[in-house]
């Protein structure tokens, strides 16, 4: 039975597979009241309108983790994918450090 004891939105872990990626990667977590909202929120927070990705959300409480002394990382380091495509401002050449 999953009645929340408190009124806090539960924590969900988010996994994203990018358009050309091979596997889902853990990107972080967020709070949502249910699975559908979690997927919606994950799209807004972790893909920023990047279409064609696959999103998995899992309740953090449902994740079973191996113990830290096991070899091998559980979570990959955050990939360096840029989620947003900013308008790059051409900076004058003389200006450094921007």
């Amino acid at each position: 039975m999953s009645t929340q004891l408190s009124k806090e939105w539960p924590l969900w872990e988010v996994f994203i597979r990018s358009q050309h990626g091979l596997a889902h990667k853990h990107v972080g977590s967020l709070h949502a009241p249910d699975a559908e909202m979690a997927v919606n929120n994950a799209r807004d927070v972790y893909t920023r309108r990047n279409e064609g990705v696959s999103i998995w959300v899992v309740r953090a409480a449902d994740i079973v983790a191996s113990s830290p002394s096991d070899k091998g990382a559980l979570f990959e380091p955050a990939n360096s994918k840029v989620y947003r495509h900013p308008t790059f401002f051409p900076m004058p050449e003389e200006v450094k450090n921007l």
Binding site: S2, T3, P33, D34
Partner: peptide, 10 residues
């Protein structure tokens, strides 16, 4: 939203 989730989980 929590109430809704609870109702539908039930």
């Amino acid at each position: 939203l929590v109430a809704h989730a609870d109702k539908h989980a039930a």
